[in-house]
């Protein structure tokens, strides 16, 4: 018996009486790379915050089939990279320090692993289970290619490098699920491409389930196997090819994103 990594059932979120997310339902299978598209203000971040327990919502959300206390226990095994991490610019943390913050205590790791095994899911560890914390940190830095910058202050890095450091921080906890909220918006092409190759690597090689929102349709068509399209409501959820074959959908709900996509191909 295999359970979905994530089930979102009829989830609604309202901010001061205005519906930011309206009755959205979808599920993510283990190993999926789900790309979520939708214009700015479509409620993508709000939906992620609901999944992460940072936002009150109506409806049900299940992680590996679990709700309630077990959901909360598994929450710490989600890797989350927000659009922008707001930290004090003077914070005296090196890249290594930041990645080290992601290390999950043994107790939480064991509890999460037990829950996952009991529901029949397979948990693909990124690092050898015997490796020490310092080895895990080094390995995560290697995956995002930041080893040479590990002793630099996080504030001295460029935006794209910072996002890679935060991805390493999310990876070092050996996540069951990785949630990425427009992680490379506003970052130059070269860094974006490097980021995309990292994404492909952790999804294909480490079999990490990923939910990823982006405006970059070209990248989504390259990397994702499934696509969800939302603007407060869910307009589409299914196989990638089906989404890209549906010109009406593309035109109506991703016009601005589409222009970006065309522009990129003109270059």
């Amino acid at each position: 018996m295999s359970v979905n990594a994530l089930d979102v059932e009829n989830v609604s979120v309202s901010h001061n009486g205005v519906l930011a997310v309206n009755k959205i339902s979808f599920s993510v299978q283990e190993g999926d790379l789900l790309g979520i598209v939708g214009p700015n203000g479509a409620g993508k971040t709000t939906l992620f915050r609901a999944i992460l327990g940072l936002q009150n919502y109506q409806g049900r959300i299940k992680l590996f089939g679990y709700e309630g206390n077990q959901y909360t226990a598994l929450l710490s095994m989600i890797g989350y990279v927000p659009q922008k991490v707001n930290f004090e610019p003077n914070f005296p943390a090196t890249v290594y320090d930041v990645v080290a913050m992601g290390i999950l205590s043994k107790k939480k790791l064991v509890k999460g692993a037990t829950l996952i095994q009991s529901c029949g899911c397979c948990w693909n560890r990124i690092f050898a289970s015997s490796s020490k914390d310092s080895e895990k940190i080094e390995e995560a830095l290697k995956i995002v290619e930041l080893e040479s910058l590990k002793n630099r202050r996080i504030s001295e890095l460029s935006g794209g490098e910072q996002q890679r450091a935060f991805i390493a921080k999310a990876l070092v906890k050996e996540p069951l699920l990785l949630i990425l909220d427009e992680p490379v918006t506003g970052v130059d092409m070269e860094v974006q491409n490097k980021f995309y190759s990292v994404l492909r690597k952790i999804n294909k090689e480490n079999k990490i389930t990923i939910v990823w929102s982006s405006h970059d349709l070209a990248a989504i068509s390259d990397l994702a196997n499934r696509v969800a399209c939302m603007n407060r409501e869910l307009f589409f959820h299914g196989e990638k090819d089906e989404f890209f074959a549906n010109k009406d959908l593309l035109k109506t709900y991703s016009e601005s994103a589409m222009q970006l996509h065309m522009h990129k191909h003109d270059l």
């Binding site: 929450l75 989600i78 290390i103």
Partner: peptide
Amino acid sequence: RKPLIHFTFDEEQAKVHG
């Protein structure tokens, strides 16, 4: 120190981290 550093760096991330 470990949870406190994480909490000081980013409250929300610390919360998600459990």
